[in-house]
Write a protein that binds this DNA or RNA. Structure first.
Lengths: 341, 341
DNA sequence: CTGAAAGCGCTTACAG
DNA sequence: CTGAAAGCGCTTACAG
C-alpha cells in the first residue's frame, strides 16, 4: 500500500490559508461560508486529493452514515427463491440514494441475530437497522423496541405493531384475490397449503383465503387447510394426502412456489390433471412458477420494493424519530396455465 | 433513543482505579497486563456495560475491521441463479470467523463500481475489498492493483494474474469432464453454447471442451460453437439453430442452466428427444436443473466456498501483504436425466 | 506491569 | 463569515 500520509483537513486549511473549521464547514456545506471561500477551499481539496475520513467524522458527529441489514440465518432452501437478493438490491438502491452505507450482518450460527444486533449498536457501527424477517414474538424486535433504537422491519410484527416501522404486502388481500380467482374459474372446493403457523404472513393469508371462501358460500373446511414449511417435501406430502381424499378439492392455494411445485409433481404422477382436476395458485413468482412444465399462477411480492421502502422507513426513523409507520407494497398476480380454464 | 451518555474507557478506568491505557490494553488483550488487573478491569467493564466504540478504534488504529464487498450491478436475470446470495453467505461466514464486518456496495447505477470502490478506500471505510466478478480488463482490478490496495477476486483476472489474489473453479477441467461424460455415453458430435466471449470463464470452458473433443478424435467444429448471454433467449435461439442443422449434433454442452433450459424447451417442442437425440449438460446446478421436467446434468460451482475462500485470500492480503495467491474450489457434477442413457 | 501524554481526523459551540 | 479551542473515544510510543 502507498505509505504516503493521507491528506487531512489540516493540510487543506494550510494550503488555503484558512482554518480547519472553515474547511470542515465547506465539507458539510454550511450556509455560513462565503461563496469565495467555499470555492477556494474546494479547489484546494481537489488539488490535494482530499477525502474526509469516515471514522473521524463518525466519532465527532456521533453518527455513522451506515445502516445495518440483518439477514436471517437461513437454510439452503430459502435461496431457491430470490427474495433476499432482490430485497437487498432494493435496499442498496435506496441506501445509495439516501447516502447511507450498508453494513451486512455476518451471522451464520442459527439464532445469532441478536448478538450481531447488539454488537452493531453498542459499538456504534450503525445509525439504524433493517430486519429482513420476523418471527412471532421476535426477540430482536423486542430488544430494539425496548431501547428505542431506529429500525424498520420487512414484514409485519405481531407485537408493538403501531410502534414499529414496517413494510409488507397485503397478504390478506393477496390470498383473498387468489382464492377469488380460483372460484371465478369455476372451482368450488378449494384447499390451502399454508406456511409455518407462527408466521404472521401465514395467518393473514389464511384469513384472506377464508374470507373469499365464505363470501362464495363455500363453507370453510378445516380438513382442507394444511400448514407446513417452505420446501418441496411439504408440497409432496400434502399433495399426496389431498389427491387421495375421498372428496378431493378441485383447487389448491399454496403459500410458495416450491411447495406448489412439489404438489403438482405428485398430482402429475397420480394422473391428476392441472388445472382441470385441480387448479393451483401460489406465491413468490419464482423461477419455478415461470418455467415449470406447467407454469404456475403466482403472486409476485415485489421484493425489490419491499427492500427499497424499508430504507425509507428507516431513514424516517433516524432523521425524524418516526415510529410505527407502515408501508404496503402492492403485489402482482401472474396468471398462468395452472389456473387457466 | 436513550440519551444516557455512553460509557467510555475513561469511566471504566476511574471505576477501576487504573489508567485508560491499562483498560485499552485489556481490551486488546495485551500480554503485558497482570492477570489480577485484567480480571479487575473486565469486571468493571461488565458492571458498567462498556463496549468499545468502533469509530474511535478505527481512527486511532488506522484499521477498520471491515471488508468491502462489491456486488456487480446486475440485471434481473442474474438472480435466477443463486450464485450471489450463496457467495455472500460464504463471505459472511468467513468474515464472522475472522472478526470482520461486511460493508456492502450500494451501487445501483451500471458501471458505478469504481466510484464505490474509491469512496470506500479514500474515506478509509474498509481494510480490503472483495470483487464478486470481473470483466476483461476490469478497471476496478486495474485500479486496486495500481494503488496496491488489498483485495481478492472471485473469478480469474486476465491481467496481473500472478499479482491478484483470486479464487475460482477449474473451468477448464469442468468443461473437459462434462464433455468427456457426453462422449462416454456415446455421443459423437458435441456442440457447445458458451457465454459472453469476453469472460475468462467462457474462454476456459471452451478450451476444456475442445481438449476433450480432440482427445476423442472428434474433430472440433467451429460451426458447433455458439456464444451468447446467460439468458433463456440465448438458449432458444441457438436451440432452434442447432435442431435445424443439416447434420445436427447429438449432444450439447451449455454454459448455464437457464440457457440449457431454453434450448431443451425448443428441442422438446420440435420433437427432439432428450437425451436420446440430443443430450444436454450444463453449469450452475440451479433450481431449473434440479426441477425441470427433464432434470439437467449440471456442474455445481460451489458458490458458498468461493465466497468463503475469497475472505481467506483477502485476510491474507491485509495481514500478510500476500499478492497473487490463488485458490481453486472444487466443483461437483450432478448427473441427471438429460445425459442418462 | 502501568501511566501520562500525544495523537488519530474530524466537528461544533463559543466568541468575535 | 471565520477562527481558536475543546472534544469525540480510542491507541501507543515513551518512560519508568
Amino acid at each position: 500500500m502507498n505509505k504516503k500520509r493521507t491528506v487531512t483537513i489540516k493540510d487543506v486549511a494550510e494550503r488555503c490559508g484558512v482554518s480547519p473549521s472553515t474547511v470542515s464547514r465547506v465539507i458539510s456545506k454550511s450556509p455560513r461560508i462565503s461563496k469565495a471561500t467555499t470555492e477556494k477551499v474546494l479547489a484546494c481539496m481537489d488539488e490535494l486529493g482530499y477525502y474526509p475520513n469516515a471514522a473521524a467524522r463518525s466519532l465527532a458527529r456521533n453518527r455513522t452514515g451506515t445502516i445495518g441489514v440483518i439477514m436471517p440465518t437461513t437454510s439452503e432452501d430459502v435461496f431457491l427463491n430470490p427474495f433476499f437478493p432482490e430485497a437487498i438490491r432494493g435496499i442498496a438502491k435506496a441506501a445509495a440514494k439516501a447516502k447511507y452505507d450498508i453494513l451486512l450482518s455476518s451471522n451464520y450460527e442459527k439464532d445469532e441475530e441478536i448478538r450481531v444486533i447488539k454488537d452493531f449498536i453498542r459499538s456504534s457501527k450503525v445509525d439504524g437497522l433493517i430486519l429482513m424477517s420476523s418471527k412471532l414474538n421476535d426477540e430482536c424486535i423486542e430488544y430494539l423496541y425496548d431501547i428505542d433504537f431506529p429500525f424498520s422491519l420487512i414484514g409485519t410484527p405481531n407485537l408493538h405493531i403501531d410502534k414499529v416501522n414496517h413494510v409488507d404486502n397485503d397478504n390478506f388481500m393477496a390470498a383473498y384475490e387468489l382464492t377469488q380467482h380460483l372460484s371465478k374459474i369455476g372451482k368450488k372446493r378449494i384447499a390451502m397449503i399454508a406456511g409455518e403457523e407462527e408466521l404472521i404472513m401465514t395467518q393473514r393469508r389464511v384469513e384472506g383465503y377464508k374470507k373469499a371462501i365464505e363470501e362464495k358460500n363455500l363453507k370453510f373446511n378445516k380438513e382442507l387447510l394444511f400448514t407446513g414449511s417452505f420446501d418441496e417435501k411439504t408440497g409432496t406430502k400434502y399433495g399426496k394426502i389431498i389427491a387421495n381424499l375421498d372428496n378431493p378439492p378441485d383447487a389448491v392455494l399454496v403459500t410458495d412456489d416450491l411447495v406448489a411445485f412439489g404438489a403438482i409433481r405428485v398430482f402429475d404422477s397420480l394422473g391428476v390433471k392441472i388445472p382441470e382436476d385441480i387448479a393451483v395458485a401460489s406465491f413468490n413468482n419464482s423461477v419455478l412458477a415461470r418455467y415449470s412444465s406447467i407454469p404456475i399462477t403466482s403472486v409476485d411480492v415485489n421484493a425489490v420494493s419491499l427492500g427499497y421502502s424499508s430504507v425509507e422507513l428507516l431513514v424516517d426513523a433516524i432523521d425524524n424519530e418516526v415510529r410505527g409507520r407502515k408501508i404496503i407494497v402492492p403485489y402482482t398476480i401472474y396468471k398462468r396455465k395452472s389456473t387457466e380454464i
